[in-house]
Computed example of a mutant assay.
Amino acid sequence: MNDDFYYHSFMNRDRLIHIVDADIATCESLSVLFRLEGFQTTFSIDAEQFAINLDRRRPDVFVINMRVGEENGLSLLRRAKAIRASMPVFMLTEEPQIAAAVTAMKLGATDVLSKPIDTEYLLTVLRDALRVDAGMGMMQSGRRQVEVRGFAQLTPRERQVLQLITNGQSNKEAGRELGISPRTIEVHRARVMEKLGARNTADLMRIVLAG
C-alpha cells in the first residue's frame, strides 16, 4: 500500500459524514461507500432522527436529500450551515430540479447531485470540499502554519509544498498549482520529510497534526 492510501485513511478516519435521506437503501449504500474510503458515517431517515444524531455528534460533512419525508431538505441545509458556515453540504435530488438546485447553492450547498448518484464524482467533490474547509479553518485560526521542530529550516517553496500536502494534494496536483513538475514536488517533499524527521507521508501527517 502506498503513502497516498495511508494519507487518505489517516485523514478520513476521524471525519463523520451525516447522510439524510428517507430512502434507507440510499443511506446504507452511501454509508458503505464512505466507510470504504475511511470515513465514519451516520444516517437519518427523517428530521427527528436528524436532530437526535446531530445532538450526539456534529459531523464534518452532510449529504441531504432535497425532500426527507414531509420535511423540505432546504430547511435541513439551513440548520447544517448554521452549525458552521463553511460546512460542506451536498444535496441530493430524485430528478433534476433547477430551481431547487439554484436555491440550495444560494443557501451555501457545496453541490447538488441527481440520482442515480455518480459516486466517483461525489467522492471527488467531497475530497475537494474537505480540503477547502480545512484551509478555511487554518485561515480562521489566524492562518496558523505548521509549527513543529524543523519547520524554521524549511524554505518558502518547501513550506508551500508542505501546505499542499497537508491539504491532501498529490504530487501531480501540487505541481500543477505551483507550476513545477511532479518530480520537483517529490524532491521538495523528500526534503521536507527529512527536515521534519518524518519517515513517510502518514508519519508526516502525525507530526503536522501534533504540532
Rank of each mutant, 00 (worst) to 15 (best):
R56L: 09
N65Q: 13
T166R: 12
G108N: 02
G108D: 02
L126M: 07
M138H: 14
E70S: 06
S181A: 10
E95G: 14
E186P: 04
I185S: 02
A129T: 06
R199S: 11
P59A: 00
A202D: 08
P59D: 03
M11A: 12
F62H: 04
S9Q: 14
L204S: 00
P88L: 06
R191K: 09
N2K: 14
T110A: 10
L92W: 07
N2W: 14
L36H: 11
T93W: 06
G38H: 04
N200F: 01
I180G: 02
R199D: 05
Y7K: 13
R176Q: 14
F90E: 01
M1P: 15
S29C: 01
E158P: 00
M193T: 02
F34G: 03
E147T: 12
F50L: 02
M136S: 14
L130I: 03
G73D: 02
Q97E: 13
R67L: 10
R131A: 01
E71I: 08
A104W: 06
L76A: 03
T184N: 13
V208W: 13
A109E: 03
A104Y: 08
D3K: 12
L126T: 05
I64A: 02
R157A: 09
N171M: 06
H18E: 05
G135I: 12
I52A: 15
K172M: 14
H18Y: 11
A202K: 08
D111F: 10
Q169T: 13
T166H: 05
L54E: 02
Q169F: 14
R183N: 10
L162P: 02
L54S: 09
S141M: 13
T201N: 04
A129F: 03
L107R: 08
Q153D: 11
A210S: 13
R143H: 11
L92I: 13
L74I: 04
E186Y: 09
A47R: 03
S114I: 07
F151D: 11
V146M: 13
G38N: 07
A198S: 00
D111A: 12
G137W: 05
F151S: 12
G38I: 03
R191H: 10
M87W: 06
V187E: 10
T41N: 00
Q163K: 10
D3Y: 04
V132N: 11
V63W: 08
N171I: 10
D133I: 09
A210H: 15
R131V: 02
T124H: 14
G137C: 06
F39E: 00
A85R: 08
Q153F: 15
D55I: 15
R191E: 12
E186L: 03
R84F: 08
M11Q: 14
G38D: 04
N171V: 07
E173H: 01
S181C: 09
F34H: 03
L33T: 06
R149E: 14
R176W: 14
M105R: 09
Q160P: 05
R56Y: 15
L36S: 09
G211W: 04
